[in-house]
């Protein structure tokens, strides 16, 4: 089993209510949300400076695409999961094969996706 418990997470989600729920879900799964952002500039800053093991990224942040954050995380070799409102993979060719989860999703679906991301201990 992959250990989710204790993993530190960055949450990027522009809708406040959804962010609250995702934080609850992540914490129910044993993760700790150590940083969260609703807007791109703050998300980029946190992606660069914060310490965490995994990130959940909303693809569309109030009309801006989250891809700059994804580039930073890729450079830092931190795994991440897109949450997308588009009902499919991200529109950007470059990230077609990155794990993604379509909104809205259940806690079980989130858990399953996260397990594929985190390294086995």
């Amino acid at each position: 089993m992959v250990e989710l418990s204790g993993a530190r997470a960055l949450l990027v989600e522009d809708e406040g209510l959804v962010a609250l729920m995702l934080e609850d879900m992540l914490e129910e799964l044993g993760l700790k949300v150590v940083a969260s952002a609703a807007h791109l500039p703050k998300a980029c800053e946190l992606a660069t400076t914060a310490s965490f093991d995994v990130a959940l990224l909303d693809v569309n942040l109030a009309g801006q695409f989250v891809f700059p954050v994804a580039h930073i995380l890729r450079a830092r070799k931190i795994p991440f999961l897109f949450s997308t409102g588009y009902g499919g993979p991200p529109l950007e060719e470059e990230f077609r094969n990155t794990p993604a989860i379509g909104k809205p999703f259940s806690i079980d679906q989130l858990e399953e996706k996260l397990r594929t991301l985190l390294p086995r201990p």
């Binding site: 809708e15 209510l17 959804v18 609250l20 729920m21 609850d24 569309n60 009309g63 997308t84 409102g85 588009y86 009902g87 529109l91 379509g102 909104k103 809205p104």
Partner: peptide, 21 residues
């Protein structure tokens, strides 16, 4: 169209969040 889809899904996310909370 993509934006509309995004908003619709977001709204579902908000509804889901309301239900859970």
């Amino acid at each position: 169209l993509a934006e509309l889809q995004h908003r619709r899904r977001n709204l579902l996310g908000v509804v889901q969040s309301l239900a859970r909370q």
